[in-house]
């Protein structure tokens, strides 16, 4: 446990990076996944198949591969982002494929009658989406999105093989130097569980707040 105490600052810095990476990636995944989800239900077949192709491609790949390819392919396209940003992009692209499907199935849980009622009172398609469908869809999406948050948090660990010194990277470097695997990995587990637990708690509260009592 000495190593953990001596290098607590470093470990916390790494944890901070993990948290930041998680939050930014998850937010980006929500935006990208949201756009894809809209494409998935769009009236244009081209957009629907684009989104479907994206989902089926990215979701069938291991996260490690997605992230490594993002880090090394983007510069080849003339886009050299910082490593942090590249890993964020890779992680977000991966999670977005799941978010897209959550959004789509969330919208499918809203009965069709809702849309027809909205249309009957004269709402436009986008008003209907914004005021009627999405608010209701959101309810059934909170739990799976919470799962996705946890997945993002755990997924940040692949950053350590792409040059980002987040929690698991710090832990592994300390382990190479001091050879105290059990203490180091135990402390990392505690921090990861803390992060995912926080995600779970927020999800639970959100769900309670959004719940409608019938």
């Amino acid at each position: 446990m000495n190593v953990v105490a001596d290098h607590f600052g470093e470990i916390l810095t790494g944890f901070g990076r993990t948290v930041l990476l998680t939050l930014v990636s998850f937010a980006a995944a929500l935006v990208l996944g949201g756009l894809l989800g809209l494409c998935r239900v769009a009236p244009l077949g081209v957009l629907r198949s684009l989104a479907a192709c994206y989902v089926h491609t990215v979701r069938n790949l291991p996260l490690l591969l997605v992230v490594v390819v993002t880090v090394f392919v983007l510069p080849q396209l003339g886009l050299t982002l910082s490593l942090n940003t590249s890993v964020t992009v890779g992680l977000a692209a991966y999670i977005a494929s799941y978010v897209c499907e959550i959004l789509r199935s969330g919208m499918e849980t809203v009965p069709a009658g809702q849309v027809e009622a909205a249309r009957a009172v004269g709402l436009t398609t986008f008003q209907c989406l914004r005021l009627v469908v999405l608010p209701q869809a959101l309810r059934s999406m909170v739990q799976p999105l919470g799962n996705m948050f946890i997945a993002t948090a755990l997924g940040t660990a692949v950053g350590s093989v792409a040059g980002v010194n987040e929690l698991s990277g710090v832990i592994r470097q300390l382990n190479v130097q001091y050879v105290e695997p059990l203490a180091l990995f135990a402390s990392a587990t505690v921090l990861y569980v803390a992060l995912t637990l926080a995600g779970g708690l927020i999800t639970g509260r959100l769900e309670r707040r959004l719940r409608i009592h019938r």
């Binding site: 081209v46 919208m107 499918e108 809203v110 469908v133």
Partner: peptide, 29 residues
């Protein structure tokens, strides 16, 4: 096709709507 609200979100297009969608599809492609 698509269940629930997702399937009926967009009204079935009329003649002009179909033309617009075709145009949109071409543009997107």
């Amino acid at each position: 096709p698509l269940g629930g609200a997702a399937g009926v979100l967009f009204e079935p297009p009329g003649a002009r709507g179909r033309r617009q969608r075709r145009l949109g599809s071409v543009a997107a492609a």
